[in-house]
Design a protein around this nucleic acid. Structure first.
Length: 139
DNA sequence: GCCAACGTTGGC
DNA sequence: GCCAACGTTGGC
């Protein structure tokens, strides 16, 4: 099962906001970047991902799960943009900051560190395990 | 608030 | 199809 990372400015839409949406989750709309869209097209229902707060917080704060395959973005009039729906699974017990990720040699290749502008990123299994562990989750 | 990095646009 | 100009993102 593949892993992902979603970025959001908490001022606009935070992990708490996603938790409010409950089990049905939230359409991850508004993404207007081809790479990010392609990543979402590759997602399967049940794929887990990290939820990252940009600007304010700058940390991975929670775990999310894909609940609906990529479909046309309802906020898009052109039909060329798609998105998945995601739901909140749980908080990361210890939010894992960008500064920590940058200082962790094993995460040098992580997209969050090396390509910070991509809003929906793939996460390798190894990166997933490292961040979960350092974020205080049981293996 | 500044600016570097990146993606997109549009003229040629 | 190249590339300069522009807009946006996001860290600092």
């Amino acid at each position: 099962m593949a892993h992902w990372l979603y970025k959001s400015e908490p001022d606009v839409f935070s992990f708490d906001d996603l938790k409010q949406k409950g089990a049905a989750g939230q359409e991850w709309d508004g993404v207007r970047n081809y790479q990010a869209r392609n990543n979402m097209r590759a997602m399967q229902v049940g794929d887990r991902g990290f939820f990252y707060h940009s600007n304010e917080g700058k940390a991975i704060v929670g775990i999310v799960e894909v609940v609906k395959l990529a479909h046309p973005d309802s906020t898009d009039g052109t039909g060329q943009w798609e998105c998945v729906d995601i739901r909140a699974v749980r908080d990361l017990p210890k939010p894992y900051s960008l500064a920590e990720a940058k200082a962790e040699p094993r995460l040098k290749g992580m997209a969050l560190v090396s390509n910070s502008r991509l809003s929906v990123q793939p996460v390798t299994d190894e990166e997933w395990a490292i961040v979960c562990e350092l974020g205080g989750l049981e293996p």
